[in-house]
């Protein structure tokens, strides 16, 4: 197992570099936005990856509430953490793109705002895990994760009605995207997925090791006390 990790890391790095080459060189320049639009190849794949990870967090939390399996809890915390990383990339690249294109850093557009709320909820989830004491952390964290997931559609609808000043979605509704752009976008997404999987795997292994360490330390603390 330990041997495979560096190999996978190198492969992922190569794939990411290739995807970057595609995004910067191969993809055609967008007519109105110019080169700035290329940030889109990072922005959108990060968003998709983050949403996927949050979905995994929801499923793992529900399964944990039913099965109470510590490994499933490790999946939940890992997916939330890696998800927050990608979500942060979305929130940074969004304004970087918006500023030259629309002349403003931030717009209360539905997808950007929903992503911000999502980020807030999962950061709160991670803080809860950090602050929670004793052995009940996984259970209460799973309950909060379910609440966050239930909130997502409500967040979406409420913001949609609150402010509707955003340009139409580029993907999914019109199909007006250049096939070459779509290809680059998808290649970048696959590269991001590989990166996410790699991060997920190493973080998951760390979490499992942490669980084993906690158990070992617990036993040791009992051995140390009142030596006879």
């Amino acid at each position: 197992m330990k041997r495979i990790f560096p190999i996978l890391a190198v492969l992922t790095g190569a794939f990411l570099s290739y995807a970057l080459y595609l995004a910067l060189v191969v993809a055609p320049t967008e007519q109105t936005m110019g080169d700035v639009q290329r940030i889109f190849y990072y922005h959108v794949p990060s968003a998709w990856t983050a949403f996927l990870l949050f979905a995994i967090n929801f499923v793992a939390s529900v399964v944990y509430l039913v099965r109470r399996n510590p490994a499933v809890d490790a999946i939940a915390v890992t997916s939330a953490e890696v998800g927050v990383v990608f979500c942060t990339i979305v929130l940074i690249t969004g304004p970087l793109w918006a500023r030259p294109v629309w002349g403003i850093w931030w717009t209360w557009d539905i997808r950007l705002t929903s992503t911000l709320v999502l980020w807030l909820m999962y950061v709160a989830y991670l803080i809860l895990r950090r602050f929670s004491t004793g052995g009940q952390t996984p259970v209460i964290a799973a309950a909060v994760a379910v609440f966050a997931a239930l909130d997502v559609p409500l967040v979406y609808f409420s913001i949609r009605l609150f402010r509707t000043q955003h340009p139409q979605p580029v993907i999914g509704s019109g199909g007006s995207i250049d096939p070459r752009m779509l290809h680059v976008l998808l290649m970048n997404w696959y590269a991001f997925l590989c990166l996410a999987a790699l991060m997920f795997w190493s973080r998951y292994r760390l979490e499992i090791l942490q669980q084993q360490l906690d158990e070992a330390e617990g036993l040791e603390s009992l051995e140390m006390r009142s030596p006879r």
Partner: peptide, 9 residues
């Protein structure tokens, strides 16, 4: 910290 984000909608 928990209540505010969930309450946004």
């Amino acid at each position: 910290l928990l209540l505010f984000p969930i309450s946004i909608p």
